[in-house]
Amino acid sequence: MKTPLTVLVCALTLTACADHAARARLGIEDSTLLKSGIGASQDEAAGAANPQWVDTYAPVVSGGPALASLQARLNRMPPEQNGYFRAKAQCWIDAGQQARQAGDHWGFVEEATGQAATIAMGLENGTSLSAANPALRTVSTVRPDLWKIVNTIKSDPAIASCREAQQPLACAEVELMQAGHDAWMRSFSNAEKRLPDVQDNLRKSAQTALQCKQNVQASAAAPTGKLHKAVMLRADSLFRFNGGNDAAMLPAGRRQLDAVAHGLKTVRGVRELNITGYTDRLGDNAHNESLSLQRAQTVARYLRARGVTLPIAIRGQGGANQLADCRQTKRDDMVRCLAPNRRVEIELVADS
């Protein structure tokens, strides 16, 4: 019995015939991935390694130890760095580990390690990092429609001050890159299997960012009668760890306070503001009380500079009124768990 020619062609190409439908659904625009069988390109344009790639990634000779080292570096970073870039570095480490455990020797492990290392180094050195996703040799673009959604979410101002929305967004981007790597290897069905997680993370990010925006707007809305409203701001997003003065303010914190100031200037029915700073329970009580007061004073001064004219009462409560009860034995884990306790509360007191 003769073997059908179509079976031979499928056996001689990286593209599985059963993957044709999945390939079409991925919206691939890379012409090299749309070719299969005899005549399919194997040159640099199709993803062959060039000297520049070798020079960049050849030093990553052992993916396991390199990824483990990067994980340890991330774990040592202070809580105020638990934002978009740290989440993205973590997702790149996870992606590299997955590819390594799957026996992927096509260069993606090295690229994932390189991306995580670049971000970790930037966070450690306090240097500027780009949120753009790089062009990687072993990654092709899939689902351009999802990339448009990624860019739409990233461009929304609410994301910058909403850490809870940043983590799923960062992971969605890395997962979409992983799907692009699967497609680059002509494993189109595997690429498609990643998409539900991508879509779920994008949905979480968009919904959380919207909730953050609504919370700020609701807090600045005009109260009625004797209703009191409050804005709770995480100190870790306002200030560098253990900082509370103007120099320690973070860009995301300034953006949050800008939004609060804008709302307060248009609000009606508010008599005064009560601004209270808090720390976690770690450390000396006197230091915590001083730090919490400094944070409240800095926030009040910032709002004043942005045109808020309401009377403001300022207090520092140190480690009082803890929101999170944490019992971890490792200090780093404890510091992360106690993050909700490090905060500044702005209470809007209504007219009688």
Results as ranks from 00 to 15, higher is better:
Met121Asp: 15
Asn82Cys: 08
Ile275Val: 15
Leu227Val: 10
Ser161His: 13
Ile159Tyr: 02
Gly263Tyr: 03
Ala68Trp: 05
Phe85Met: 10
Lys229Pro: 00
Leu233Asp: 03
Trp53Ile: 12
Ile314Trp: 09
Arg281Pro: 06
Cys337Asn: 01
Gly277Pro: 09
Asn245Lys: 10
Met185Ile: 04
Gln322Thr: 09
Ile312Asn: 05
Ala72Val: 13
Arg268His: 05
Ala131Gly: 10
Ile153Tyr: 05
Leu74Asn: 09
Val299Ser: 08
Ala66Val: 04
Arg301Phe: 01
Ala99Gln: 12
Met1Phe: 11
Ser205Tyr: 06
Gly37Ala: 05
Leu14Tyr: 08
Asp43Met: 12
Val54Tyr: 14
Leu250His: 02
Lys193Ser: 07
Ala296Val: 04
His287Pro: 05
Thr276Val: 10
Ala40Glu: 15
Val267Pro: 01
Glu80Asn: 03
Leu195Tyr: 03
Val198Trp: 00
Leu67Tyr: 02
Thr15Glu: 14
Met334Asn: 12
Val231Ala: 15
Thr152Ala: 13
Ser189His: 11
Glu289Ile: 08
Ala286Lys: 14
Thr56Gln: 15
Gly318Asn: 08
Ala324His: 11
His105Trp: 15
Ile346Trp: 00
Leu12Met: 14
His20Lys: 15
Glu289Gly: 15
Gln297Ile: 12
Tyr57His: 15
Ile275Thr: 01
Ala112Ile: 04
Arg186His: 13
Cys10Ile: 14
Ser292Gly: 01
Tyr302Asp: 13
Gln71Tyr: 00
Leu250Tyr: 03
Leu195Val: 13
Trp92Thr: 03
Val9Leu: 11
Ala165Glu: 00
Leu227Ser: 04
Gly27Trp: 12
Leu250Gln: 10
Ser155Phe: 06
